[in-house]
Design a binder for these strands. Sequence first.
DNA 1: GATGAATGAGTGTTCATTCAT
DNA 2: GATGAATGAACACTCATTCAT
Lengths: 244, 244, 244, 244
Amino acid sequence: MARRERSGSGNGKARAPRGTRVEREAERKKTILRAAVDVFSKKGFHGCRIADVAREAGVAYGLVYHYFKDKDELLESVFESGWAGFLGRVQAEIEKDVHLAARIRGIVHVAFDAYRKDPRGVKVLILEVGRSPAGGAVNRGGAFTQVVLGAAEMFREAQRRGEMPSQLDAALAAVMLFGAIEMGLTAFVLGILDKRDEAAIERARDQVAETFLSGVLGAGQPLSLPEAPWTEKSGTKSRAERQS
Amino acid sequence: MARRERSGSGNGKARAPRGTRVEREAERKKTILRAAVDVFSKKGFHGCRIADVAREAGVAYGLVYHYFKDKDELLESVFESGWAGFLGRVQAEIEKDVHLAARIRGIVHVAFDAYRKDPRGVKVLILEVGRSPAGGAVNRGGAFTQVVLGAAEMFREAQRRGEMPSQLDAALAAVMLFGAIEMGLTAFVLGILDKRDEAAIERARDQVAETFLSGVLGAGQPLSLPEAPWTEKSGTKSRAERQS
Amino acid sequence: MARRERSGSGNGKARAPRGTRVEREAERKKTILRAAVDVFSKKGFHGCRIADVAREAGVAYGLVYHYFKDKDELLESVFESGWAGFLGRVQAEIEKDVHLAARIRGIVHVAFDAYRKDPRGVKVLILEVGRSPAGGAVNRGGAFTQVVLGAAEMFREAQRRGEMPSQLDAALAAVMLFGAIEMGLTAFVLGILDKRDEAAIERARDQVAETFLSGVLGAGQPLSLPEAPWTEKSGTKSRAERQS
Amino acid sequence: MARRERSGSGNGKARAPRGTRVEREAERKKTILRAAVDVFSKKGFHGCRIADVAREAGVAYGLVYHYFKDKDELLESVFESGWAGFLGRVQAEIEKDVHLAARIRGIVHVAFDAYRKDPRGVKVLILEVGRSPAGGAVNRGGAFTQVVLGAAEMFREAQRRGEMPSQLDAALAAVMLFGAIEMGLTAFVLGILDKRDEAAIERARDQVAETFLSGVLGAGQPLSLPEAPWTEKSGTKSRAERQS
DNA sequence: GATGAATGAGTGTTCATTCAT
DNA sequence: GATGAATGAACACTCATTCAT
């Protein structure tokens, strides 16, 4: 952002071929970031050392500290560069002024596409994000929570528009959406589904979207299921029990 | 050896089993285990030190090593004692010979009940389990995967019985089920939903179950949605778009 | 020594079969001592744990501490029980009123016999004794030094008696004697010579004795060796330089 | 990169090699090694802590680990740097193509010179080397054994050349040689002889060499000793008894 | 900017020793 | 006397971070 152009000051000797100093620096930073993603995805945040990242990036040990204040900032950058982009795209889908179904499909698509493009990165996100109870480090919670809340608002709006029954709690719907997506991807990460099968990934994507939609939209019409006890009872009952 | 029989003094019901050395040792071990769960849930696996566990349990540092070979074994025990129990109950639900809907509800109930009984423990499970790319330590992967596969089999069986449409991939259905549950609980862990509201927990439980059921069972009847592009086209289309 | 006979005091019930309590205790202590020798010989003093000794002896962990104040005392006892005996016998040989040659042979015999009877014990002595620079523990230095000094006195006496030339420093002769013996045994301990070959042990014993004798007794008659430069030069010179 | 050429400022003789990073690192490593030798010689291997070595060397704790993988490697280096050099020089003496007597004297000289130059180092070698039954660490055994075997070969060769009677077992002769040397030095280490008396050291050196030579070379001519019982009997006898 | 040596606090683990039963 | 659980000091090793070149 703070671009400081300082094109050649008469230094007629050797000049770095491609790109300004600034550009090359940005390049370096990206290299390190990418290396960090790789290493994190292999060993996890805690299991990796700065030395690993440096080696993977092919730069000197101390250079990492030129670009990142400390390990935490590095992690945060990883998330900003990956997660933020992802969340941004999700948010964009959320804000589209189309029918709920289209938005859901859009969100799911964004997630699965991200996985197809950068399985490593997604793996890191899935495995590390939100798993930092120590706080401090990955403050993904915040960003992620924001998106979930945004999605909840989307559902609420859809309910107002009549695009979806009002019985289902909007926040819960949002949560379930991301749960379905995450586990869908986790299935590939853990090897339950074959990650090398492109078609399988696409199929999973569509089924996740449609199944979720079917569940959410059909929530109003309690299909005649054999005994669906809690749909009515539970609410009442629990309220009664609440006295203790 | 030094058996100290202290036959009930009229206390016809529960009898304090304290006294035998063996019993007190088992007690100690449990104390440490509980302390470990507590500490883990507060600081996560990597953020916790043996010293913390010992302090929390109120025992001497070295005693932890009397009962557990090393930190990894302690962690594994935490998961075995918590996770294994949970997975066992899930498995029991899976194997019940009732309609799919009942089984799904049973599974969801087991999970939410576990959370109600021991939020801390569940938090640990959710935040740490399966997030140990370093491998070795938390070998939950295996057990969890087994249960997911078991659930997949359940869905497959249900499809054969005609209790559920065959279009949805059974494995994916299993994965989504656990995803919905996990995220449902995560919502409480992360504070998106109010964990102190017992009724909210029950409501979430039921909605998760019913929504999931609705989605899975209704998967056959693609409700007349405004544009549901991928249901049919997807495979072809995406392959076409792949050119870029 | 302090035998405290307390034959049955009318205790008509169960009585320990063989031996008084005192006797059984002495027995225990010996068992532990033997176990300690074994373990030390396998892992060395520092490499072994009290637990190892206890296990080897087949007694409970804490019992070792009933009989020995601490690890150091245990080690000292090992040396006292083995080393002291050995040194005593050596001392006896030293004090015999016979010709030097006979005494030397006697000493060598004592050492090699000890090895034949208890290779383990000798190994411990050789490998650990005198290797405790930390002081404290093995105060063998003292005892060993005493014996060396005793042997030196023996040589001095022999020189007075004319049984041996006076040129060789008596103290050095003593030192060399034990050096030859120790290395002779070390050869078996390290496997340079075959420890299972009884005849080899006997041969080594005799050759050590005779060679040493030959060297010491012949010290007066500087066999016409091709160039024996230091015998005269160095000695004289150094004595001259000694003034400073 | 930042090469800072500081070509001699008229200092025609010795040039301070300091300046290059590599050189200073080698220097550092040596400093640590020397410190390790010092600490070992004071406290022994087991009694010394990495912290001691670091303090003695005046470097930071962690730096020791920068140069040495772990404590064992440090120890090994200590021995390699000291022991290997010593053994090499001994081996050189062994391989010289001169009369046995000269070689023996050479070997003894090498040993005593080493002691004069670096009593500390020799002390470590004497007190710790070969006393590591735990194996692994000090693999001196191998190197030392090799030299002993080399010396044995030297004696065998001398026997073929007729420089020494054939009765004495060559391997035993080798063993005794080193035994005499070791104990000769031990006498100074233990304080039996005065280590500050340079002349005493020289005298001891020469007497050890000559006495040993006298013993070995005179081995053929069993000086008319009063009763030399085993010289004939024992050998024969033991061979006979060997039947059992 | 780049490099990697230097630093040292933090933590897992061991094990001698004590003590209640 | 026996037993082995309990205690905690001691120490090896790691690794984030700094700094001189």
